[in-house]
Design a binder for these strands. Sequence first.
DNA 1: AATTACGTCAACCGCGTACGA
DNA 2: TTCGTACGCGGTTGACGTAAT
Length: 266
Amino acid sequence: MGLKKGPWTAEEDQLLIAFIRQHGHGNWRALPKQAGLLRCGKSCRLRWTNYLKPDIKRGNFNKEEEDTIINLHEMLGNRWSAIAARLSGRTDNEIKNVWHTHLKKRLKNYQSTSNTKGQTVTEPKCDSNSSGESNTLNSGFESSEYASVSPQDSSSQLSSVTDLAGLPNNVVIKDESMDTSETFPQIDESFWSEELSTGNSTMQSDFAGFAEELQFQFPFPLSPSMAASIGTMEHVNEYNFNIDDDMEFWYNLLIKAGGLPELSKI
DNA sequence: AATTACGTCAACCGCGTACGA
DNA sequence: TTCGTACGCGGTTGACGTAAT
């Protein structure tokens, strides 16, 4: 079709920047023709979002950013755009590259070191589930999909999420002898009641409102005590999550908050 | 100095999804 | 409800630079 491929030249970059500054990018397909570029719209969009957009942060990732990626990857899997959304100035493509070139290796090294000490390390989810979609808990999922999450899976996630930050390089170490029930406490009916474990009626009232606010995000009844657990957890603010974030993050928080209910109750 | 191996990263490809006709 | 189009996402590729031999 006579369209150019391969690396962008400085002239092409300037054409694209100038056009978007003047007209925006409402229609990527039409943009290259209007801007005088011999590129497909897809290529233009990619060049803009991954390289030319003004708010993009260039340069190496610092330790904090890398740790954040590792933590988020543990929770979200290979959902690079979701991870990028929580790292300002970084693109999904860049994060994906950093993961494959640096961080995966870093975890692997740590894993081999740990194995020599008789410990096991949980694998990052991405490798066993490369699509990152099949067993994640996205908003809008069917209840049958939700029920497919086994307590074993959840226990693994619990240990990952809980222990992640405190370890060197944020690697999760799990003792193989660990009983599921130890890390994944059974909850009784009282967990679902409106009573808060603290017995503080003011808090109960506050979190009842909070639960109501959060409820639309969940496909199962959310008690004030669960909302209280969520609301008091430091992780809520750790990565600037908000209520609109995806279900999987909240699901992980619920696990940490008090364990999962029996699946039949979900 | 030449060659090979490896690491990095920008760009491409294919697929799934949202949305409008 | 179906179909076509546009877009976004994740996986993969390939060009380029650098280190090792």
